[in-house]
Nucleic acid binder design. Structure first.
Lengths: 202, 202
DNA sequence: TTATAGCTTAGACAAGTGTCTAAATTTAAT
DNA sequence: ATTAAATTTAGACACTTGTCTAAGCTATAA
């Protein structure tokens, strides 16, 4: 990303960022990400190519910014003070809620972009990276019988894989049923219990 | 892939396929996949661009063929008659063996291609897809308390994530230690026990 | 109001991509 | 060894990509 998101954007910059991300979201519902060109993006929002390259490195960079916008909505950054097991369910619920809310948009995008292609992978990967950060913080102070990074990977993968199965592979599942699956996958038990914890700390 | 791999390739075609894949393997040790161009590949193995496009759609297609060549070496396709838990460990061992054997090549490639970039993702993804096929077959006839596809995803993700951690994140781990981690991640117990199975069938 | 610093933009650039044609060459089967 | 079918190849094509320059615009602070 060429534009520095950390500082307060000017009114003009905000307008430009919105225009490009909206154009991308629009185009993703119309065609495959592969076939979208920078020219096409610029035409759609009536900005010159030079401006595009002032803000983004390439279309991958822009789509990444789009994921950043979506992720903000999931409130993945707000970490409540809860036990690891509760956190797991809490974040699962937020993801579930988000995908449920954006069902229509997701379905439209999936029409032109297969689940196994770059686009969807880049989205779920973005979310996975965000969820990893949270788990990394949570596991930092705990006594584990397995390296923390491994557990971080396992938990975020389990969460995202289940979400992906329900919403991207389109296997309608109630939140209750999803919780049952989650507990089986995470802990091989009836309750959600983290693997690798030396003692349960619910 | 434009060339039909299912039929017996002619001597010439075999030579061409080898030349292109070798060129790609060579270049991956010299620079990042992103910066490799089709022109460069063709120059390195002295074939005209037109020939490249006779065989492959693009460089992603070629690198995919490279993964196919590697995967054959792992013998992922030979499925022995074993219980699900034994299969899990068997395939983990094969992957472990393969990566251990190709340590040098992997390290060289990782020097120019970061773990989080497209190239490495495309490789581990290829392996994941291959491992998925095996688990799908294994779980087909079993009684599970969770949809089979979910379990397939979970098991292959756990396997590949552990392998990735050991070899691509470069966390040297003995096979014994790896088995211990695997059992914790898969079953939250001292032994490797699959989650989701209605009854243990060791 | 007016500098001035920072953006925005048009257009050119070198390089890459994937497709196509028609000629040259190779292959496999008689 | 001959021949018909299939493949390979050179070169051209239209198009995309990312960079760069120099001219234009705009916002803010004196």
């Amino acid at each position: 990303m060429k534009y520095d998101l950390s500082r307060q954007p000017t009114k003009g910059a905000q307008r430009t960022l919105s225009a490009f991300s909206s154009a991308m979201f629009d185009l993703l519902e119309l065609e495959s990400f592969e076939t979208i060109s920078v020219n096409e993006i610029c035409e759609r929002c009536d900005y010159p190519r030079a401006t595009f390259y002032n803000y983004f490195d390439d279309k991958y960079d822009l789509v990444n910014y789009c994921w950043y916008l979506l992720a903000t909505e999931i409130r993945v950054d707000e970490a409540p003070q809860l036990s690891p097991n509760e956190i797991l369910v809490t974040y699962f619920d937020r993801l579930y809620q988000f995908f449920d809310h954006h069902k229509r948009q997701m379905k439209a995008i999936l029409k032109h972009n297969q689940v196994d292609e770059t686009l969807v992978a880049s989205f779920t990967n973005y979310l996975k990276q965000t969820v990893r950060k949270i788990f990394r913080q949570i596991f930092a102070g705990l006594q584990l019988n397995i390296p923390a990074e491994l557990l971080v990977t396992q938990c975020s993968a389990t969460l995202l894989n289940l979400i992906e199965w329900i919403f991207l592979q389109d296997e309608p599942t109630t939140l209750e049923e999803a919780h049952r699956y989650l507990s089986i996958l995470i802990g091989n038990s009836k309750k959600v219990v983290m693997p690798g914890l030396v003692q349960s700390i619910d």
